[in-house]
């Protein structure tokens, strides 16, 4: 990988490695892809491009012939595409990459079919119902497929369905809590499933899901900062519950990902959320008392300096945690090799 090559270059610069033997070291470290790696890359790239091209071609065809096709022709095409994708899944099997690609293509075709259904039979259903139905129908496939990308896609559709639902039926400012609970629940289940199934333990997918959770709770907490002390009729709430939820989330995330799952990225998410929250609080508190600090300009200067100071402090804490986690990991490797 790229970081192997970077280490080797660094060691050569530090004179630990003879620069004349650098090409040999690069070969040994596998710093560049081998012939077999290139073959596999070409294979995957051709497959991905083919799936994209075929899926896009189908979608474009629908878009063009929308007005001209009769109902039954439209459904025949949509269901035919879905059937071909599902046949691919059955024939190739979910253990293969091409089978997984077929499953993802089938998920997209399912959405197209549901959109066609809603378009053709105008039952007065709302858009959120389309996404909710897509979500419900896709769930068994996501469970069987055990594909991280498909689960992320499913979660995205679920969030879109919720967003559209709340657009149609606006409740109150606490909608972010519902998004937070749904995404947090999904993340918790995914972490549990990842311990059992290797395909679901890919950290990049879990981190994206955690990013969604962080966005929800941070949004709520920032709103809460501006709600504290305001009359209830202004915002519909007092902000205290949002801040309490943030504290509980930060504590839970911190403990779980520091001591159990040991994923530093999640701790950085907590740090970033804290920085945003602290900045909002600073702007509110100092803004309301700006006369004490020489007016608007002096307040801005103080806010800017404090933001830099808080970022330094948060960075120091995260740095210390990172070093401790690295030392623990090194101690674990040394113990295993002994």
């Amino acid at each position: 990988m790229n970081h192997h090559r970077i280490w080797l270059l660094l060691w050569a610069e530090q004179k630990h490695l003879d620069p004349a033997r650098l090409p040999e070291a690069l070969r040994l470290a596998g710093a560049f892809p081998s012939a077999d790696d290139w073959r596999q890359f070409a294979d995957r790239l051709l497959l991905a491009l083919a799936v994209l091209a075929l899926s896009s071609g189908v979608i474009f065809f629908f878009a063009y012939n929308w007005e001209r096709l009769g109902h039954f022709s439209r459904f025949a095409l949509a269901e035919g595409a879905l059937a071909v994708a599902l046949f691919g899944v059955w024939r190739l099997g979910l253990a293969r990459a091409s089978g997984q690609a077929s499953l993802f293509a089938a998920a997209l075709c399912l959405g197209a079919l549901l959109a066609l259904l809603g378009q053709t039979y105008q039952t007065g259903a709302d858009t959120w119902e389309l996404f909710a139905a897509w979500c419900a129908l896709l769930l068994p496939w996501a469970i069987l497929g055990r594909q991280a990308l498909l689960w992320l896609f499913w979660l995205a559709i679920l969030n879109v369905a919720l967003f559209l639902y709340f657009s149609f039926f606006p409740l109150d400012h606490d909608n972010w809590q519902r998004f937070f609970i749904v995404n947090l629940g999904a993340l918790a289940l995914w972490e549990g499933a990842g311990r059992r199934f290797a395909e679901l333990s890919r950290r990049w997918a879990l981190r994206l899901a955690a990013l969604a959770v962080t966005c929800c709770v941070t949004y709520g907490a920032v709103l809460g900062v501006w709600m504290v002390g305001e009359p209830r009729y202004v915002w519909g709430g007092d902000g205290g519950d949002a801040l309490l939820i943030w504290v509980l989330w930060a504590a839970g995330f911190g403990v779980f990902y520091r001591y159990r799952a040991r994923d530093f990225f999640m701790l950085v998410l907590v740090g970033a959320s804290f920085l945003l929250l602290a900045t909002s609080a600073l702007i509110r508190v100092l803004g309301e008392n700006r006369k004490l600090f020489g007016g608007g300009n002096g307040t801005f200067l103080l806010i800017g300096l404090l933001v830099i100071g808080i970022a330094l402090g948060a960075g120091l804490v995260l740095w210390r945690i990172h070093k401790n986690m690295e030392e623990e990991a090194r101690g674990k490797i040394a113990g295993e090799s002994a």
Binding site: F300, L301, G304, I308, L318
Partner: peptide, 22 residues
């Protein structure tokens, strides 16, 4: 890690812009 550096960089960039403006 790169994401920690990115986070701190964005925070410092925000603070620096506010300081420059003020």
């Amino acid at each position: 890690p790169w994401y920690m550096e990115a986070m701190l960089f964005l925070a410092f960039w925000t603070g620096a812009e506010i300081v420059v403006f003020a």
